[in-house]
Amino acid sequence: MIPGAFDYHRPKSLGEAIGMLNDLGDDARAIAGGHSLIPMMKMRLASPSHLVDLKGIGDLAYIRAEGGEMVIGAMTTQHDAIASAELAAKVPLLREAALQIADPQIRYVGTLGGNVANGDPGNDMPAVMMCLDASYEIAGKGGSRRVAAREFYQGAYFTALEPGELVSAIRIPTPTAGHRAAYEKLKRKIGDYAIAAAAVVVTLAGGKIDTASIALTNVGETPLLAGDAAALLIGQAPDKALFKKVGDAAAAISEPASDARGPVIYRRKMAGVMTERALARALAQTA
Protein backbone atom coordinates (compact mmCIF):
# COMPACT_ATOMS: atom_id res chain seq x y z
CA MET A 1 0.00 0.00 0.00
CA ILE A 2 1.50 3.28 -1.11
CA PRO A 3 0.09 6.63 0.02
CA GLY A 4 -0.67 9.47 -2.38
CA ALA A 5 2.15 11.86 -3.20
CA PHE A 6 2.84 14.82 -0.92
CA ASP A 7 5.50 17.39 -0.14
CA TYR A 8 7.32 16.92 3.14
CA HIS A 9 8.22 19.74 5.51
CA ARG A 10 10.13 19.59 8.76
CA PRO A 11 9.85 22.89 10.64
CA LYS A 12 12.30 23.61 13.46
CA SER A 13 9.94 25.56 15.68
CA LEU A 14 6.28 25.64 16.65
CA GLY A 15 5.93 29.10 15.11
CA GLU A 16 7.34 27.87 11.83
CA ALA A 17 4.97 24.88 11.87
CA ILE A 18 1.94 27.10 12.50
CA GLY A 19 3.08 29.42 9.71
CA MET A 20 3.36 26.49 7.29
CA LEU A 21 -0.04 25.07 8.19
CA ASN A 22 -1.63 28.48 7.67
CA ASP A 23 0.21 29.17 4.40
CA LEU A 24 -0.37 25.73 2.92
CA GLY A 25 -4.04 25.69 3.89
CA ASP A 26 -6.47 22.77 3.88
CA ASP A 27 -4.22 20.44 1.90
CA ALA A 28 -1.62 20.37 4.67
CA ARG A 29 -1.68 18.03 7.65
CA ALA A 30 0.53 18.04 10.70
CA ILE A 31 2.14 14.71 11.49
CA ALA A 32 3.33 13.77 15.00
CA GLY A 33 3.92 10.02 15.51
CA GLY A 34 1.87 9.39 12.39
CA HIS A 35 0.43 6.09 13.56
CA SER A 36 -3.13 7.23 12.96
CA LEU A 37 -2.40 9.36 9.88
CA ILE A 38 -0.03 7.09 7.94
CA PRO A 39 -2.41 4.09 8.00
CA MET A 40 -5.18 6.43 6.77
CA MET A 41 -2.89 7.68 4.00
CA LYS A 42 -1.97 4.14 2.97
CA MET A 43 -5.64 3.28 2.62
CA ARG A 44 -6.11 6.60 0.76
CA LEU A 45 -8.65 7.69 3.34
CA ALA A 46 -6.43 10.74 3.73
CA SER A 47 -4.44 12.31 0.89
CA PRO A 48 -2.82 15.50 2.14
CA SER A 49 -0.68 17.39 -0.39
CA HIS A 50 1.68 18.54 2.34
CA LEU A 51 2.87 16.90 5.53
CA VAL A 52 4.27 19.15 8.23
CA ASP A 53 6.37 16.87 10.47
CA LEU A 54 6.51 18.11 14.05
CA LYS A 55 9.33 15.77 15.01
CA GLY A 56 12.04 18.36 14.39
CA ILE A 57 10.57 20.71 16.99
CA GLY A 58 12.74 19.84 19.95
CA ASP A 59 10.92 21.69 22.67
CA LEU A 60 7.57 19.94 22.33
CA ALA A 61 8.61 16.76 24.16
CA TYR A 62 8.75 17.30 27.91
CA ILE A 63 7.02 16.41 31.16
CA ARG A 64 7.18 18.91 33.99
CA ALA A 65 5.39 20.09 37.09
CA GLU A 66 4.18 23.68 36.97
CA GLY A 67 2.31 25.04 39.95
CA GLY A 68 -0.52 22.62 40.63
CA GLU A 69 -0.35 21.08 37.18
CA MET A 70 1.57 18.44 35.29
CA VAL A 71 2.37 19.78 31.84
CA ILE A 72 3.09 17.37 29.02
CA GLY A 73 4.47 18.55 25.70
CA ALA A 74 2.41 17.36 22.74
CA MET A 75 5.29 15.39 21.15
CA THR A 76 5.88 13.33 24.29
CA THR A 77 5.50 9.69 23.25
CA GLN A 78 3.44 7.12 25.11
CA HIS A 79 6.74 5.35 25.80
CA ASP A 80 8.23 8.45 27.43
CA ALA A 81 5.06 9.05 29.44
CA ILE A 82 5.18 5.45 30.71
CA ALA A 83 8.85 5.87 31.65
CA SER A 84 8.29 9.07 33.66
CA ALA A 85 8.58 8.37 37.39
CA GLU A 86 7.05 11.75 38.18
CA LEU A 87 3.96 11.08 36.07
CA ALA A 88 3.65 7.57 37.50
CA ALA A 89 3.68 9.00 41.02
CA LYS A 90 1.42 11.98 40.44
CA VAL A 91 -0.96 10.85 37.71
CA PRO A 92 -0.89 7.04 37.82
CA LEU A 93 -4.09 6.87 35.73
CA LEU A 94 -2.22 8.21 32.72
CA ARG A 95 0.51 5.60 32.89
CA GLU A 96 -2.02 2.83 33.42
CA ALA A 97 -3.94 3.89 30.31
CA ALA A 98 -0.80 4.41 28.21
CA LEU A 99 0.31 0.84 28.96
CA GLN A 100 -2.92 -0.39 27.37
CA ILE A 101 -2.46 1.52 24.11
CA ALA A 102 -1.53 -0.51 21.04
CA ASP A 103 1.85 -2.29 21.29
CA PRO A 104 5.48 -1.42 22.10
CA GLN A 105 6.42 -0.31 18.57
CA ILE A 106 3.47 2.05 18.43
CA ARG A 107 4.00 3.44 21.94
CA TYR A 108 7.58 4.39 21.00
CA VAL A 109 6.25 6.63 18.25
CA GLY A 110 2.68 7.57 19.14
CA THR A 111 2.40 10.88 20.97
CA LEU A 112 0.15 12.18 23.70
CA GLY A 113 -0.62 15.24 21.58
CA GLY A 114 -1.62 13.17 18.57
CA ASN A 115 -3.72 10.86 20.67
CA VAL A 116 -5.74 13.68 22.22
CA ALA A 117 -5.94 15.94 19.15
CA ASN A 118 -6.95 13.40 16.53
CA GLY A 119 -10.53 13.13 17.72
CA ASP A 120 -10.70 9.38 17.08
CA PRO A 121 -13.28 7.98 19.52
CA GLY A 122 -11.12 4.85 19.79
CA ASN A 123 -8.18 6.73 21.32
CA ASP A 124 -7.78 6.16 25.04
CA MET A 125 -6.24 9.43 26.24
CA PRO A 126 -9.22 11.70 25.50
CA ALA A 127 -11.45 10.04 28.12
CA VAL A 128 -8.50 9.93 30.55
CA MET A 129 -7.97 13.67 30.05
CA MET A 130 -11.68 14.39 30.47
CA CYS A 131 -11.71 12.33 33.65
CA LEU A 132 -8.71 14.27 35.00
CA ASP A 133 -10.25 17.59 33.85
CA ALA A 134 -7.14 18.36 31.80
CA SER A 135 -6.93 21.20 29.32
CA TYR A 136 -5.12 21.56 26.05
CA GLU A 137 -2.86 24.40 25.02
CA ILE A 138 -3.65 25.22 21.44
CA ALA A 139 -1.19 27.20 19.35
CA GLY A 140 -2.41 29.14 16.34
CA LYS A 141 -1.62 32.12 14.20
CA GLY A 142 -2.84 34.62 16.76
CA GLY A 143 -1.07 33.07 19.77
CA SER A 144 -2.23 30.34 22.09
CA ARG A 145 -5.46 29.50 23.86
CA ARG A 146 -6.57 26.86 26.33
CA VAL A 147 -9.52 24.56 25.86
CA ALA A 148 -10.77 22.10 28.48
CA ALA A 149 -10.68 18.46 27.35
CA ARG A 150 -14.32 18.31 28.41
CA GLU A 151 -15.14 21.01 25.80
CA PHE A 152 -12.77 19.83 23.08
CA TYR A 153 -14.52 16.87 21.45
CA GLN A 154 -17.43 17.63 19.13
CA GLY A 155 -17.85 14.48 17.06
CA ALA A 156 -15.81 11.68 15.56
CA TYR A 157 -12.68 13.44 14.24
CA PHE A 158 -14.26 16.84 14.95
CA THR A 159 -12.69 18.88 17.71
CA ALA A 160 -12.33 22.48 18.85
CA LEU A 161 -9.12 22.74 16.78
CA GLU A 162 -9.46 25.31 14.00
CA PRO A 163 -7.57 24.94 10.71
CA GLY A 164 -3.97 26.01 11.18
CA GLU A 165 -3.96 25.21 14.91
CA LEU A 166 -2.04 22.57 16.85
CA VAL A 167 -2.26 21.15 20.34
CA SER A 168 1.11 22.10 21.84
CA ALA A 169 0.72 20.84 25.41
CA ILE A 170 -1.58 19.07 27.82
CA ARG A 171 -2.13 20.49 31.30
CA ILE A 172 -3.39 18.14 33.98
CA PRO A 173 -4.38 19.50 37.40
CA THR A 174 -2.32 17.27 39.69
CA PRO A 175 -4.80 15.02 41.49
CA THR A 176 -4.77 15.11 45.30
CA ALA A 177 -2.18 12.81 46.84
CA GLY A 178 -3.96 9.64 47.91
CA HIS A 179 -6.62 9.88 45.20
CA ARG A 180 -7.83 6.61 43.69
CA ALA A 181 -7.91 5.99 39.97
CA ALA A 182 -8.28 3.18 37.45
CA TYR A 183 -8.71 2.62 33.73
CA GLU A 184 -10.54 -0.53 32.73
CA LYS A 185 -10.38 -1.37 29.05
CA LEU A 186 -12.09 -4.33 27.44
CA LYS A 187 -10.52 -5.33 24.15
CA ARG A 188 -10.61 -8.29 21.79
CA LYS A 189 -6.86 -8.69 21.82
CA ILE A 190 -3.80 -6.87 23.06
CA GLY A 191 -3.26 -3.66 21.12
CA ASP A 192 -6.84 -3.29 19.99
CA TYR A 193 -9.08 -0.30 20.46
CA ALA A 194 -11.57 -0.65 23.29
CA ILE A 195 -14.88 -2.45 22.98
CA ALA A 196 -15.61 -0.15 25.91
CA ALA A 197 -13.38 1.45 28.52
CA ALA A 198 -13.87 3.55 31.63
CA ALA A 199 -11.59 5.94 33.51
CA VAL A 200 -12.38 6.83 37.11
CA VAL A 201 -10.79 9.23 39.59
CA VAL A 202 -12.14 9.31 43.14
CA THR A 203 -11.14 10.91 46.43
CA LEU A 204 -12.27 9.82 49.86
CA ALA A 205 -12.89 11.78 53.05
CA GLY A 206 -13.70 9.98 56.29
CA GLY A 207 -14.49 6.72 54.51
CA LYS A 208 -17.00 8.40 52.18
CA ILE A 209 -16.51 9.35 48.55
CA ASP A 210 -15.73 13.05 48.42
CA THR A 211 -15.16 13.71 44.71
CA ALA A 212 -15.60 11.48 41.67
CA SER A 213 -15.22 11.68 37.97
CA ILE A 214 -15.90 9.05 35.29
CA ALA A 215 -15.27 9.11 31.54
CA LEU A 216 -15.88 6.51 28.84
CA THR A 217 -13.86 5.53 25.74
CA ASN A 218 -15.19 4.31 22.37
CA VAL A 219 -18.86 4.08 23.25
CA GLY A 220 -19.91 7.21 21.40
CA GLU A 221 -18.82 9.62 18.70
CA THR A 222 -16.70 11.35 21.35
CA PRO A 223 -15.34 10.32 24.73
CA LEU A 224 -18.12 10.77 27.26
CA LEU A 225 -18.05 12.35 30.70
CA ALA A 226 -20.47 10.44 32.91
CA GLY A 227 -21.29 13.31 35.24
CA ASP A 228 -24.63 12.05 36.53
CA ALA A 229 -23.18 8.62 37.22
CA ALA A 230 -20.25 10.14 39.14
CA ALA A 231 -22.64 12.31 41.19
CA LEU A 232 -24.31 9.16 42.57
CA LEU A 233 -21.05 8.36 44.37
CA ILE A 234 -20.68 11.59 46.31
CA GLY A 235 -21.11 11.25 50.07
CA GLN A 236 -21.51 7.47 49.83
CA ALA A 237 -19.39 4.70 51.32
CA PRO A 238 -17.77 2.49 48.63
CA ASP A 239 -19.97 -0.51 48.09
CA LYS A 240 -20.50 -3.12 45.38
CA ALA A 241 -24.19 -2.39 44.93
CA LEU A 242 -23.41 1.30 44.57
CA PHE A 243 -20.80 0.57 41.88
CA LYS A 244 -23.38 -1.44 39.96
CA LYS A 245 -25.87 1.43 40.11
CA VAL A 246 -23.20 3.89 38.95
CA GLY A 247 -22.16 1.52 36.15
CA ASP A 248 -25.76 1.33 34.95
CA ALA A 249 -25.99 5.13 34.98
CA ALA A 250 -22.76 5.40 32.96
CA ALA A 251 -23.98 2.79 30.46
CA ALA A 252 -27.18 4.77 30.02
CA ILE A 253 -25.35 7.75 28.46
CA SER A 254 -23.31 5.59 26.06
CA GLU A 255 -24.15 5.58 22.36
CA PRO A 256 -21.87 2.93 20.90
CA ALA A 257 -21.96 1.81 17.28
CA SER A 258 -22.52 -1.78 16.22
CA ASP A 259 -19.35 -2.96 14.56
CA ALA A 260 -16.76 -5.72 14.60
CA ARG A 261 -16.30 -5.03 18.33
CA GLY A 262 -19.87 -6.04 19.08
CA PRO A 263 -23.50 -4.95 18.88
CA VAL A 264 -24.83 -1.84 20.59
CA ILE A 265 -26.50 -3.71 23.44
CA TYR A 266 -23.26 -5.53 24.34
CA ARG A 267 -20.99 -2.49 24.14
CA ARG A 268 -23.40 -0.42 26.22
CA LYS A 269 -23.51 -3.14 28.84
CA MET A 270 -19.71 -3.32 28.81
CA ALA A 271 -19.44 0.45 29.34
CA GLY A 272 -21.29 -0.15 32.60
CA VAL A 273 -19.24 -3.19 33.54
CA MET A 274 -15.95 -1.36 32.89
CA THR A 275 -17.14 1.52 35.09
CA GLU A 276 -18.11 -0.88 37.83
CA ARG A 277 -14.78 -2.72 37.66
CA ALA A 278 -12.76 0.50 37.54
CA LEU A 279 -14.54 1.77 40.66
CA ALA A 280 -14.10 -1.53 42.49
CA ARG A 281 -10.38 -1.63 41.67
CA ALA A 282 -9.73 2.05 42.38
CA LEU A 283 -11.45 1.86 45.74
CA ALA A 284 -9.74 -1.39 46.69
CA GLN A 285 -6.33 0.35 46.40
CA THR A 286 -4.72 1.35 49.63
CA ALA A 287 -4.60 5.10 50.11
Binding site: M1, G34, D53, Q105
Partner: peptide, 29 residues
Protein backbone atom coordinates in the same frame (compact mmCIF):
# COMPACT_ATOMS: atom_id res chain seq x y z
CA UNK B 1 0.14 -7.07 7.04
CA UNK B 2 1.03 -3.55 5.87
CA UNK B 3 -1.43 -2.26 8.47
CA UNK B 4 0.80 -1.75 11.52
CA UNK B 5 -0.36 -4.94 13.19
CA UNK B 6 2.03 -7.79 12.52
CA UNK B 7 5.49 -6.38 13.26
CA UNK B 8 7.26 -8.39 10.52
CA UNK B 9 8.72 -5.10 9.24
CA UNK B 10 10.14 -4.13 12.65
CA UNK B 11 13.52 -2.38 12.60
CA UNK B 12 15.41 -0.37 15.18
CA UNK B 13 15.28 3.40 14.57
CA UNK B 14 17.34 5.59 16.90
CA UNK B 15 17.07 3.04 19.69
CA UNK B 16 13.37 2.36 19.30
CA UNK B 17 11.61 -0.56 17.66
CA UNK B 18 9.39 0.73 14.87
CA UNK B 19 7.17 -0.83 12.25
CA UNK B 20 8.88 0.35 9.10
CA UNK B 21 5.64 0.04 7.09
CA UNK B 22 4.31 2.96 9.13
CA UNK B 23 7.27 5.32 8.92
CA UNK B 24 8.24 7.34 5.86
CA UNK B 25 11.85 7.06 4.80
CA UNK B 26 12.14 10.85 5.06
CA UNK B 27 11.24 10.59 8.74
CA UNK B 28 14.36 8.46 9.21
CA UNK B 29 16.59 11.18 7.77
Amino acid sequence: CETTHCGACTVDLDGKSVKSCTVFAVQAD
